[in-house]
Write a protein that binds this DNA or RNA. Structure first.
Length: 160
DNA sequence: GCCAACGTTGGC
DNA sequence: GCCAACGTTGGC
């Protein structure tokens, strides 16, 4: 019985938002397009089914945590790396030696209203949150259980 | 839309 | 294997 871990995953909502996730079949999607090794390694090596994920909307105003998801699959190769028509195509990746991995994620809850970055920044206990650090570009980040709980308090809902 | 910070690439 | 050049990210 392994301990549940917590994560934050970023998406530009005009590309893929929490509403898009909610409208998918089973409210589940594959988190395609990660092309950063550190972020890939988190998905490939550390994520477990059932882990909690904060859904962060980046490059938009206001910047928010829009809600939460659960890791819903084991890691597997990102199909888009093999697809020449995909913007995520990687000519150096092969089916035998895939370079990029992903997991499925399933919608858990939407924060109404969402928790803004401004709120996160002024909340005690979140000082070390990676997403708040200047220049933090990593699109998948670990979150502590304490941070997970505080964010849910700010959202006014119970953690699930 | 700008641009600083960051990650990756590739010549040497 | 260093590091300059380049491309990308993401807050503002």
């Amino acid at each position: 019985m392994s301990e549940r871990k917590y994560w934050l995953m970023k998406s530009e909502p005009y590309e893929f938002s929490i509403d898009d996730l909610m409208s998918r079949e089973n409210q589940t999607t594959y988190w395609e397009g990660v092309r950063n090794y550190q972020a890939r390694n988190f998905m490939r090596d550390q994520m477990k089914v059932g882990d909690g994920v904060l859904f962060y909307h980046s490059r938009v105003n206001p910047l928010v945590i829009a809600g939460t998801m659960n890791v819903a699959s084991e890691p597997y190769p990102d199909p888009s790396q093999f697809d020449p028509d995909s913007k995520y195509f990687d000519e150096k990746a092969t089916e035998e030696k895939p370079r990029w991995f992903l997991v499925d994620v399933q919608f858990t809850q939407k924060f109404e209203p969402p928790v803004t970055r401004d709120t996160l920044q002024e909340t005690p206990g979140l000082e070390d949150m990676m997403v708040l650090r200047k220049g933090a570009r990593l699109s998948i980040q670990p979150v502590t259980e304490q941070e997970w709980n505080i964010v849910h308090e700010l959202a006014g809902v119970d953690p699930k």
